[in-house]
Design a protein around this nucleic acid. Structure first.
Length: 677
DNA sequence: CCGCGGAGTGTTTTT
DNA sequence: CACTCCGCGG
């Protein structure tokens, strides 16, 4: 207890040591929230509470692991505390209880791409795509359905708010949603939303609820401001009986509204648990006062009044954050890359620097500049590995090995064979699904597949051999992966011009696969906690000093911090993103996003933007973000040291030089021919 | 029935 | 500017 007093302030100490009853912790950015959870886990375990009866729900697996392993440094028992995301917790629980709600416990999880494919198939079954020319696309349909689940709204409410031009299809989409639900139940599929949805369904049963309440006596939820209605319900149901629940959050950092999250959950926590203890952490240990001044001015410009204000615990005021203007994205990238190099030479290692942006495409010029200078970086957010076609292709083959009745996987696999199109594929699928075992499918379907061309029969034979070889469960996961990879290589080279780039990914994936005990585990991890591209190349045990630079979307930077932070691309239309401007609520979420970005910085902060941009091929002039262009924010920024470009300088677009003509079209062609010889 | 090429569209954030 | 969908030719 005394050691706790030494390393925690009073508020943190209260949050850590109140272990019975409901606790709401309002934790401002950098106020030691992670520390509180870490020490609370430790305190619980050292109070002789069995680690297996503690449940820690976080926003990412990374966060859970980090907090638990830190706690485990003080007491190794902490590492057996159960932790993870709501989705992974639901997955694990549903694996045990699947049969209670009519699913086989071998159910598989659909990622977004799979879900889109499934929805597409359902729409086809209903004939929607043929009948209506302007019926929404499959990704839009998936989003509409998903939002309606996560926000607990009707289809027409979602359409009203986000897709008013599709309102006329409300009834059709309603039908589609039902069809899609049936489709998944029939085929033993759960998508991301189903994990939460069915988990709630399960918990609504009194018997299950009390059994789980008995198992998990102490519950902690991190980033509670970013939970949605379903996740809130899960929290209430799990804790209903013993009321030993602590939630931690910051309403000012709520940035997942698009996924149905709402800070309502935080606000209403006291209503669900009357008499709950409320602890506010307002002392900021992370940033200098100069950085907090910017953050606080951003907060004060928002309509909603947030729960607190940040006060620096650090004594030094620190340098004034800088605001930099550039002519175009390339000059911005160039300057930032140079600055990063300079800072590294001055002793701020790459691992202590981070570059943040609203959307991943903003970072492309910077990636090029970093590449030129050989500066290693890791990229968070943006396109995921598991969403790229080549990775999904290989994974589909592995899925078949685990579940030979996986219709979506077979569909993908068949379509890769030369000469097989939608019709042939459908016929093959029908026959595949009537077979009971993989071996059956290999002989009956692949063995005498209808082939009119030689390449076609060759393709089938190769697939059959590959699957038959990889079927052998006695081999290691890595070996089985390698067999599939070998089969896929010629297809990869045939289908993609940039196959040499993609083959790198698949080789990395091979390394990853070797770490798994079974293909099923590999697939589960991929579905529930997909790896981020950047994380792969980084060994977490490496010391900070050797870690690469971080490039990250603001969303993915949640909970992270760096000595020096660059926030780039601060233009109106980018942050705030243009389509968030229609709705003031959405615009305010963008402003919270800006706040989150700023508060990642410990010592130095650079805000930057560029004026000249291309959008849809058309040149345009970007204006400074409305969140920056406010007197009280600007007054906390240093614009004097403008190393970059001044706004006035780019007044008129450059006219092409008028000079003496050297060639006309005809003579130029002649000249060219000389070279081509 | 498949594959290729042209036209058109919409462009974010993540489990 | 990249990806998806549609129509045509083989």
């Amino acid at each position: 207890m005394n050691q706790l007093k030494d390393c925690l302030n009073q508020a943190q100490f209260d949050a850590v040591t109140t272990i019975e009853g409901p606790v709401l912790v309002i934790a401002g950015a950098g106020s030691g929230k992670t520390r509180v959870i870490e020490y609370r886990v430790l305190h619980l375990v050292q109070s002789n509470i069995p680690p297996s009866s503690v449940l820690l729900l976080t926003f990412t697996r990374r966060a859970a692991r980090q907090m638990l392993s830190r706690a485990a440094r003080h007491d190794p028992r902490c590492s057996s505390v159960e932790g993870g995301t709501f989705h992974s917790f639901a997955y694990r629980t549903l694996k045990k209880y699947a049969r209670a709600i009519g699913f086989a416990d071998s159910f598989s999880v659909l990622d977004e791409g799979d879900a889109e494919e499934a929805i597409h198939r359902c729409s086809n079954m209903l004939g929607f795509f043929e009948r209506e020319k302007r019926f929404p696309r499959k990704d839009t349909l998936r989003n509409i359905i998903s939002v309606s689940v996560n926000k607990n709204a009707s289809v027409s409410e979602v359409l009203q708010k986000e897709y008013p031009h599709f309102l006329e299809y409300g009834a059709d989409i309603e039908v589609l949603r039902k069809k899609y639900a049936e489709y998944k139940i029939e085929r033993n599929y759960l998508d991301y939303d189903d994990l939460l949805l069915y988990m709630r369904l399960l918990l609504e049963d009194e018997r299950v609820r009390s059994r789980l309440a008995e198992k998990y006596q102490y519950i902690m939820v991190d980033e509670f401001q970013d939970t949605n209605g379903l996740q809130g319900d899960l929290t209430y149901l799990l804790a209903e009986k013993h009321r030993n629940v602590m939630v931690v959050g910051d309403d000012a950092q709520s940035i997942y509204g698009f996924r149905g999250a709402s800070f309502e959950n935080i606000m209403k926590f006291p209503e669900h648990f009357p008499g709950c203890k409320v602890v506010k952490l307002e002392e900021n240990y992370r940033s200098t006062q100069s950085i907090l001044d910017v953050a606080n001015s951003v907060i004060s410009n928002m309509k909603h009044k947030y729960s607190k204000c940040l006060l620096a615990a650090r004594k030094k005021k620190g340098g004034t954050p800088k605001l930099l203007f550039f002519k175009d994205a390339y000059e911005e990238a160039e300057w930032i890359a140079e600055k990063i190099k300079t800072l590294r030479d001055e002793g701020i290692t790459l691992g202590h620097q981070g570059v943040l942006f609203r959307s991943s495409y903003i970072s492309i010029p910077l990636q090029a500049e970093l590449g030129k200078r050989n500066i290693p970086y890791q990229l968070f957010g943006g396109l995921k590995f598991y969403e790229t076609a080549h990775v999904k292709d290989v994974m589909a083959h592995l899925k078949i090995l685990v579940n030979p009745h996986d219709e979506l996987a077979w569909n993908r696999v068949f379509m890769l064979i030369d000469g097989v199109g939608p019709k042939t594929c459908d016929r093959l699928l029908k026959r595949t699904l009537t077979c009971s075992h993989l071996e059956d499918i290999l002989t009956k379907v692949l063995g005498n597949a209808p082939h009119r061309k030689r390449q076609e029969s060759q393709g089938f034979a190769r697939l059959k051999d590959a699957l038959r070889a990889a079927q052998n469960a006695k081999m290691s996961t890595g070996e089985r992966y390698a067999l599939i990879f070998d089969y896929y290589k010629p297809i990869l080279k045939d289908r993609f011009d940039n196959w040499h780039l993609r083959i790198n990914d698949l080789e990395t994936l091979e390394q990853i696969s070797m770490r798994y005990g079974s293909i099923e585990d590999l697939l589960t991890d991929f579905a529930i906690e997909p790896p981020e591209r950047g994380v792969w190349r980084v060994d977490p045990s490496e010391p900070d000093e050797e870690r690469p630079l971080t490039l990250s979307t603001v969303h993915s930077a949640k909970g992270l911090e760096w000595e020096c932070v660059f926030v780039i691309g601060l233009m109106d239309g980018v942050l705030p993103v243009s389509f968030a401007l229609r709705d003031p609520e959405d615009t305010e979420e963008e402003q919270r996003l800006f706040y989150v970005a700023i508060t990642r910085a410990k010592n130095e902060l650079f805000l930057s933007l560029h004026h000249q941009g291309t959008r849809g091929g058309i040149r345009q002039f970007n204006k400074i973000s409305r969140f920056v262009d406010v007197p009280n924010v600007l007054s906390n920024l240093d614009r004097s040291s403008v190393t970059g470009f001044k706004a006035e300088q780019i007044a008129e677009p450059e006219a092409p030089e008028t000079i003496v003509p050297i060639y006309d079209k005809e003579s130029l062609l002649k000249k060219l021919e000389q070279f081509l010889r």
